[in-house]
Design a binder for these strands. Sequence first.
DNA 1: GTGGTCTAGACCACG
DNA 2: GTGGTCTAGACCACC
Lengths: 127, 127, 127, 127
Amino acid sequence: MISFDTFHPVDGVPIYQQILLFIKRGAVAGTIRDGDELPSRRMLSALLGINPNTVQKAFHLLEDENLITSQMGAGSNMTLSEDKIRELREELLADDIRSITASLKQMGIDKAEALRLIERNWEDTEA
Amino acid sequence: MISFDTFHPVDGVPIYQQILLFIKRGAVAGTIRDGDELPSRRMLSALLGINPNTVQKAFHLLEDENLITSQMGAGSNMTLSEDKIRELREELLADDIRSITASLKQMGIDKAEALRLIERNWEDTEA
Amino acid sequence: MISFDTFHPVDGVPIYQQILLFIKRGAVAGTIRDGDELPSRRMLSALLGINPNTVQKAFHLLEDENLITSQMGAGSNMTLSEDKIRELREELLADDIRSITASLKQMGIDKAEALRLIERNWEDTEA
Amino acid sequence: MISFDTFHPVDGVPIYQQILLFIKRGAVAGTIRDGDELPSRRMLSALLGINPNTVQKAFHLLEDENLITSQMGAGSNMTLSEDKIRELREELLADDIRSITASLKQMGIDKAEALRLIERNWEDTEA
DNA sequence: GTGGTCTAGACCACG
DNA sequence: GTGGTCTAGACCACC
């Protein structure tokens, strides 16, 4: 059963998208594996204190991307392959790196300083 | 007159917030300085192909943060001090670093790999 | 459910302010009471033939004055106390009386004639 | 020369409309008479501390209603007849009385109380 | 269905 | 020409 203990939504970005990202990142990290069972929509919505419809929307999008399969009455399970994970990794990493790099460059930060900032603050941040 | 040539809004995040960030990051970078004149609401909205009200919302928020002052009939100008710039720098950098670090950690990336990723992709990204 | 049957907006004054006044005057009159449910933003805007956002603005201001409370997904309800009603009564009456008195005086109407005018036209006017 | 000493604009209603009302009410009161000269647009805008364009707009509307005539280079003068004044009186009074009566009725004030309120507060209000 | 937000266009007072 | 306000319509998260 996939754990959502480390899921802490922030505001300003749709919750259902954050659920998607949480699942995808877990898949890339290897903490979420092929065949893993997800909590039921009802249970997850109760666990996270959010609306069942919001969870439903996230699950629906995960199905659209063929990352989970849901059987009537039998919950949902991850369907991951090496290829999918590689794809996810590239897609997510590219977005993140592009975003942070562009942002820092706009503030006039050069590469050396960027690396020093990441280096110095790495331990202080929770996953 | 502050130039918006390098402003390229993405979707998924409110345009007025992107305008805010663009100004703040320019102030941190030093390309936007105290006293600099901002384009009029009309001119900027025409330039960006968006509604004057969207620009107005961004400018209004900048005024609330005492980063610009607007006079009726005349335009708007930056009001920056060394202290404000330092505050902005810390605030923006902290957000960016926290965000990228948390994201990479969730994907199981360790510090060494994170630094290597930034290092390798730095030149490929536009500001 | 608060009825807006007797609400007839005039032009020249912002509609959202007229909605505010309608609610406040109803509270003073006692026709709108603590706990009363307001129509939804959609329903009221359809009823009045105006934009939902205009209603939203009025409701938001009422919330700022602690005259209504709104819950996501549920509706909005009045939150009135004896003190608030007394405050409203004094505030609204003072404005109205000051306004009409100043206006009549500017037209050279004296007190006796003013009273006679009110007296004579009282029955002819709808609330 | 018509005096604007007692003109005190309030906000929330367009200033050019308040100028119109000031002139009309003076005509009804008899303090502004046929042939009276108005200050020049320039002088009046300086006197009231408002924009010449705003004064211009008021004068233009007064011309449209045939209440003033302007000669090139020779200022503007009132053009009032007994009939016009009677019309103005009826129009303005009807509006005021209808407005105050409707407002008080909406607050559940009855005729006796309305008269008492006007009576009691008459002296306290400036024209 | 509900409330909340974002973007849009027209109008006003002003320099 | 400028900034400020009012009304409008579409979209989102939620019950």
